[in-house]
Design a protein around this nucleic acid. Structure first.
Lengths: 138, 138
DNA sequence: GCCTACATTGGACATTGTCTAAGTCAAGAA
DNA sequence: TTCTTGACTTAGACAATGTCCAATGTAGGC
């Protein structure tokens, strides 16, 4: 099934029930959950899973680049399993939901050398903010 | 001195010592402080200022658009007093410091209608991430 | 099937931010 | 100037999110 699990095994990860469940939760849907939402969904399948384990697993997935950590507001971070395709985010200012979008152009090209101040720049993220259709009609 | 205070008075704000100090801290420097850093610096001039007051004042300044709230990582929000000139941010992944930068082009123009999913888009922010010279040499 | 290093657990703790009730004070009125 | 009043501030409790640790459990190699 999930080739995410394959890749984890290739990295020498022990495949525990907990990690499997967390990976499945992330894999299953295209919404970007908070750590607590992942925990809630994982608990449905594996009721005794600890919050700390979810946090650990998510951090590890982020560290190896399988998942991207997104913090759009000052609230909880959200976890984006779609790390394999470059994309940006569209955020609803009211409810906080996030959609993946694919703008054209490369933002890095828009930052001239004189505006880099000696930084070694690794990447650029673009966040579009607005109101989603559901919140607009509510 | 600060015409920020002028503008606040024009809006009917009561000019208390606390608000004055918070405005001065933001005005003084071009670094983007966290709320606690603002509180620490404000305390130097007005030792009895409460944390809640700093939070209140910052929120109010954000609400009226004098200050921008920036959350680049999942940690504390930072407050950017440079709200009057459009700009983006360059963030050091290691130490978290933020610099204002002015890229060319308009990111909004790069998001085609088919990628807007019915959202009413208000604005776009670009965050460049990398390593600052200080962290690179350390 | 046994071992053992790695993973999980549960709960204490840390950080950041919010709320409230009681006291204080800026600024307009007299 | 002094008075009055409603907006502002305070201290501390509380909430949300995230981190850490010692004890316990278990995946996978032998």
């Amino acid at each position: 099934m999930s080739d995410l699990l394959e890749r984890l095994r290739d990295r020498g990860w022990r495949l525990t029930a907990q990690r499997r469940v967390v990976a499945e939760v992330l894999d299953g849907d295209h919404v970007h959950y908070t750590a607590d939402e992942v925990h809630a969904r994982a608990s449905e399948r594996l009721p005794e899973i600890a919050r700390a384990t979810v946090y650990n697993t998510l951090s590890e997935l982020v560290a190896i680049g399988e998942v991207i950590e997104v913090s759009t507001d000052g609230r909880a971070k959200r976890y984006d399993p779609n790390a394999r395709h470059a994309h940006q985010h569209l955020v609803c200012s009211r409810c906080g939901t996030i959609r993946d979008v694919h703008p054209s152009g490369d933002p890095l090209a828009n930052l001239p050398e004189t505006e880099r101040y000696g930084f070694t720049i690794a990447d650029a993220t673009v966040t579009y903010r607005g109101t989603c259709p559901q919140c607009a009609s509510a």
